[in-house]
Structures are given as structure tokens and as C-alpha cells.
Amino acid sequence: METIKIISSYALPAIILIILCIGLYKEVKVYDIFVESAKEGITTVIKIMPSLVGLMVAIGVFRASGALDLLIFALRPVTDFLGIPKEAVPLAMMRPISGSASLALISDIMKVHGPDSFVGRVVSTMMGSTETTFYTLALYFGAAGIKKIRYALAAAMIADFSSILASVWICTLVFGRS
């Protein structure tokens, strides 16, 4: 499992180096293009700001009132059985529906438990390895005019579910459960 830690440490620097070297080799004005493209990052963040405010307020209310604890408590038997940390359950429920709500949720979870806690690492891994399945399905099939989706949703949900279990499993192996 040391290998996965090493991969995590070297992945970003290696990718940055490869991108820059290939860029220079292909005679791309690397710095100019970087600055030009980085603007898009600002637009992306500005665009999600209003939804992040709305959703984080809703999550904040839900947690501060004790409603979140009730929900987690109710789902306790299922999560204990599957070995999923109970704090990660709301994310597992929200992830297929909304990307910005999931983003708000993981921010909230990591704010409370810390990004370097076991729960923090599990929700980070879950967030990075799944997609907004319902939204994507509705968008893509809707655009093509598909009404009978047959087994598509079932297969996508199986994949999502396996990625939740895989996240818990790999984080336990790599970081240890603490």
C-alpha cells in the first residue's frame, strides 16, 4: 500500500512536468497559454459560488438542528453492516443527484472532522471517484430522446455503489482506520 502513497505524492508533479515538457517541445507558449486558460478556473468557481452558499446553508441548518444525527442514526444498521463510516452516508445519498450539493457536503464534513481524518479521506475519495449519475443520465438520454432506459440506471447505480465500497476499502488499507 506504500505504492499508492508514493503514486499520490508523485502524480501531480509528474503530470505537471509532462504537460509542460510536451508543451515546450510542441513550441506552445506555455506561460501565455497557462495564464489565458487559468481564467476559466475563476469563471468556474464564480459560477458555483451562489449554489454553494445556498446548499451550505441548508446543510448547516440540517446539521446544527440535529436532523443529520437523526438521519445517520436511522441508517446506522446498514452502514455498520457495510463498514461505511456513518458520517459519509449523506454524501453517498447526495452524490448521484447533485454535484454542487456534494461539494457543499464534503466541505461541511471536512470542516467538522478535518480533511486528514479517516472520514475526510473517505469522502474525498468518494467525491473524486463518482459522478452525478442521475443528472448525467437525464441530460444525455433526454437529449437523445430516449424514454425506455432499460438497465442503464441499474448498471450505473451498481458502479456508483461499488465505488463507495471501494473508497472505504482502499482508504482503510492505505491510511488505516482511525
Binding site: 502513497k5 502524480a11 486528514d116 479521506r121 473524486g128 471517484s129 456508483d160 465505488s163
Partner: peptide, 14 residues
């Protein structure tokens, strides 16, 4: 960035 490796494992298995 410590979660990059775990994300890869989880995403490929899913």
C-alpha cells in the same frame, strides 16, 4: 493530494 492514489483505485474498480 494524498487521495489521488485512492481515487484512482476506487474509480478504476467502479
Amino acid at each position: 493530494t494524498e487521495i489521488v492514489g485512492t481515487v484512482w483505485v476506487a474509480t478504476v474498480s467502479s
